[in-house]
Computed example of a mutant assay.
Amino acid sequence: MTTPRHEFYETDEKLTLSIFDKGADPTAVNINFEPRKFTYTHGDKTLVLEPLKGQIDADASDFTVGKVKVEVRLIKRAQGRWGALTGDAPDPLSSTPLPQQTSAPTSGTRKPHKNWDGITTSILSSEKEKTTDQDPNVGGDSTLNGFFQKIFADADEDTKRAMMKSYSESGGTTLSTNWDEVGKGKVEVKPPQGSEWKQWG
């Protein structure tokens, strides 16, 4: 058994431990977090830190396995600098109840925060995106406008006149491409079902 080279730096909230184990296999790395003990094993390499200088939050602590080193983040239960990884200093938390949240005072317990943007993005990216040709409603109003602009651009003069006249005279409630019908007279306002048209001004 060999002890891998390691070093650390810390803030008041956490201690970051770098274990230099080049080419470590993430599936073979075994790390165990306990309130006053940390254990790392990988092949014939072992690192045991006990007792830790202060108490850690075993559930909140985590690690990442990189190509050159394994980076471990030990989240401190009480704010403050340790100055060393291990030590027999009396644990100020051993006889006191553990606080819910040390970084910010909150009333009651904090509810886990959901990343709605991330969830929405993952749902949208998992669905196959449609083009405006398949569904004119894709992308909201701007794409819908693009769809109508495409029809307008490809249309003949009579169709363009019908579209402009029907849209403006109906207050935006009707869009017709039939000049024979629209050219006969004023286009009536057709509000959506269940709503009432009122003239403003």
Rank of each mutant, 00 (worst) to 15 (best):
I31W: 03
E188L: 07
A162N: 03
E196P: 08
I56Q: 03
P105S: 06
L175M: 01
G146Y: 02
I123F: 08
P4K: 10
K45Y: 05
P51N: 07
P136A: 07
L52W: 01
W197F: 12
Q193D: 15
G83C: 06
E34F: 07
E169P: 02
S142H: 08
P51K: 07
N137R: 13
P112D: 07
P99L: 10
A153K: 15
F148N: 01
R77G: 01
L93K: 07
Q193K: 14
E127K: 02
A60K: 15
T121H: 05
P97L: 13
E129V: 03
G139D: 12
H42M: 01
E7G: 06
N30T: 08
G108T: 01
F63R: 05
E7H: 05
A89V: 14
G146Q: 08
E129Q: 11
V187F: 00
N137I: 06
G139I: 10
V48F: 11
S107G: 09
L124I: 01
D91W: 13
P51R: 08
P26R: 11
P4R: 08
A24F: 02
D180F: 01
E7T: 04
D154C: 05
K69R: 12
M163N: 04
Y9I: 06
D21S: 15
N145M: 11
S166I: 04
D180E: 10
D180T: 14
A78I: 13
T102C: 08
I123T: 01
F147Y: 04
G139V: 12
T109N: 10
A89Y: 12
K76A: 00
R81K: 14
D44I: 14
M164T: 08
S168C: 09
